[in-house]
Amino acid sequence: MSKYTTGEIAKLCNVSVRTVQFYDTKGILIPSEITDGGRRPYTDKNVKQLQLICLLKSLGLKLTEIKGILDSHFSTNTLLLILDEQSQKLTDELKEREIRLKVIKSVRTTLQNSETIPTEILTDIEHIMKESIKLRKVHYLLIITGVICAFIQYSTLLLGIMKGV
């Protein structure tokens, strides 16, 4: 089993030493041991864990979500749920941006074809923007509710298994 210094693990995973230290202080990447001299050797398992952290971070997950995945006994299921949520979030953002792009093209065409913008178009633009903000709030509420329900479901299942029910 290989052991790596903070600098070596940082270099292997293409992150800074400060990033490794930060993840350590946040309890996300815990070294295999702490020597009497205060050194923090990392193992191959830690390298894989840091690579996973970097991958999840690049997918847009927050450190609290990543820590939850790493701490979970159902880490694969939890990761799949979070990745589905992240995918849906990005899909929704893309749809919203596509709508904005269509509005911009429409306004641009209108501007090129006339000297003034009709008030109906301005009112429609304002309405679309307000509705997309409302829809985003509803979407986030649904995601939070789904995560809570999934947590309750897995907790109940785990409790049932532990109790032998």
Rank of each mutant, 00 (worst) to 15 (best):
K26I: 03
R108Y: 09
E33N: 11
T64R: 12
R39D: 07
K105N: 14
R97D: 03
T19D: 10
K45N: 02
I53M: 11
D84Q: 08
D92K: 06
E85S: 02
T5K: 07
A10S: 14
V17A: 01
E33T: 13
A10H: 14
L56R: 13
T64F: 12
T76K: 12
S75P: 05
Q88V: 01
S58D: 14
R18F: 13
L80E: 05
K102T: 15
S58F: 12
L50C: 05
K67S: 04
N14C: 13
E85Q: 09
K45M: 05
L55W: 15
K11W: 15
Q49W: 06
D44H: 09
G68E: 12
L101T: 13
L29F: 00
L63E: 09
L50S: 03
I53S: 04
D36G: 12
Y23M: 01
K45H: 08
I34K: 12
R100E: 15
R39G: 01
P41I: 01
T76L: 08
N14K: 14
T76P: 03
N46W: 06
V20K: 08
L81F: 10
D84W: 11
T91E: 05
I53Q: 08
P31I: 01
V47I: 13
S75Q: 03
L63Q: 14
K11G: 12
D36A: 13
T64C: 13
N14S: 15
Q21I: 10
K105L: 14
V107G: 02
L94M: 00
T25Q: 03
F22N: 05
I104W: 13
I9R: 08
K45I: 14
S72E: 00
Q86Y: 01
